[in-house]
Amino acid sequence: DAPDEFRDPLMDTLMTDPVRLPSGTIMDRSIILRHLLNSPTDPFNRQTLTESMLEPVPELKEQIQAWMR
């Protein structure tokens, strides 16, 4: 099983494109984008959230890719 820090906190699946929300939570980009289609909010604190506020986490993405090899 993947380490917890590699798993999306909402869907508990392996992240492939991790992004940091303004709240500091790291999620998979595809999952948070799907959530934003229904509700333009951070799913953990209900603060306003837009796609432009998502910050890529390239170092975590590299760690996940290395773990998958």
Rank of each mutant, 00 (worst) to 15 (best):
M15C: 07
Q63N: 07
S23H: 05
T41C: 11
M27F: 06
S39D: 13
N45K: 05
S39Y: 09
R7C: 10
L37N: 10
P22Q: 03
G24E: 01
L60D: 00
R29L: 11
P9T: 04
P3H: 05
L36F: 06
M15V: 01
D12R: 15
N38E: 13
N38H: 14
G24M: 05
H35I: 09
L36W: 04
L14M: 09
M27E: 02
I64P: 00
D28C: 08
D12F: 15
P58Q: 10
P18H: 03
Q63F: 08
L21P: 01
P43N: 03
Q65C: 12
R7L: 11
N45M: 06
L60M: 07
M11C: 15
P43T: 02
S39R: 06
Q47L: 10
L21K: 00
P18M: 01
D28M: 06
M53K: 05
P3L: 05
F6D: 03
N38P: 00
D28H: 02
L36D: 01
T16L: 14
V57C: 13
I31F: 04
I64A: 00
I31V: 15
F6S: 02
L36T: 01
D1C: 15
F44A: 04
Q63I: 11
P56T: 08
M68S: 09
I32G: 00
R7Q: 06
L21F: 04
R69Y: 11
D17Q: 04
R20E: 03
N38A: 12
A2Y: 15
D12H: 15
W67Q: 02
S23L: 01
H35S: 05
N45R: 05
Q47E: 14
L60A: 01
S23G: 08
L10P: 04
D12E: 09
K61I: 07
M15W: 02
L37E: 13
N38I: 14
E55Y: 08
E59W: 15
T16N: 10
P58H: 10
I32R: 00
T25C: 12
N45Y: 06
P40M: 10
F6Y: 12
P56Q: 08
G24K: 04
P56S: 11
E62K: 13
E55V: 15
T16I: 14
V57H: 07
I32M: 01
I64G: 00
E62L: 13
S52C: 10
I64L: 06
L49S: 02
E59L: 12
L21I: 04
T48H: 15
R20F: 05
A2D: 05
I26L: 04
E59Q: 12
I26A: 02
D8F: 04
R7G: 02
M15N: 02
E55T: 13
S52W: 12
K61E: 06
N45L: 07
P56M: 07
P40H: 12
S39H: 10
A66C: 10
T48E: 13
R46I: 07
N38K: 13
D42S: 03
R20N: 01
S39I: 07
V57Y: 08
M53A: 07
L33T: 09
R29A: 07
P40D: 11
V19M: 10
E55F: 08
M53W: 06
D28V: 04
D28F: 09
L21W: 04
S30E: 14
Q47C: 10
L60S: 02
T48G: 11
R7P: 02
R29V: 06
N45H: 08
T13V: 13
P9M: 07
E59A: 10
P40Y: 09
R7F: 13
M11A: 13
P18E: 00
I32H: 00
F44I: 06
M15G: 03
D12Y: 14
T48Y: 15
E5M: 13
D1V: 14
M68N: 08
T41K: 08
K61N: 06
T25M: 15
D12N: 15
F6H: 03
P18R: 01
P22N: 01
P22C: 06
R7V: 06
L36Y: 03
R34K: 14
L10I: 11
M11N: 11
K61M: 09
T13W: 08
D8G: 03
T50E: 10
P56F: 08
V19T: 04
R34A: 15
T50C: 09
